[in-house]
């Protein structure tokens, strides 16, 4: 699954945390430090697996817990239309 930041979503870092604004829905959100790091990794690579590998090297957490937390947060970000998935797309469709 490839993820990308949804169109019309802007983010701003605020110290270690961040604020996200969905311009389509007019709703804004906050991410804590770990969530912000995950957001940047997903925005950069689009790969949850790659993000998890990186976070495991940076944070004192075991893989099963991190996997569960990342899955939960990604579900929330998609549900709030902050992330979209390219799962149904093919590179040639551009």
């Amino acid at each position: 699954m490839r993820l990308r930041v949804a169109e019309n979503v802007v983010s701003r870092d605020l110290a270690d945390e961040s604020v996200l604004l969905n311009l389509d829905t007019g709703t804004y959100f906050g991410l804590d430090a770990v969530g912000t790091r995950l957001w940047h990794l997903l925005a950069e690579h689009g790969s949850p697996e790659s993000a998890i590998e990186t976070l495991l090297t940076e944070y004192d957490v075991d893989a099963p817990r991190l996997q569960k937390d990342v899955d939960t947060l990604i579900d929330q970000l998609i549900d709030k239309k902050l992330l979209t998935t390219d799962a149904a797309r093919t590179p040639s469709s551009r």
Binding site: G30, E58, D60, D69, Q76
Partner: peptide, 18 residues
């Protein structure tokens, strides 16, 4: 190398920007 303390990542919905 020292790792940062981990907290469950949290998304908070603050509400309508308007």
């Amino acid at each position: 190398s020292p790792k940062k303390p981990y907290n469950t990542p949290t998304l908070v919905e603050y509400g309508d920007i308007a």
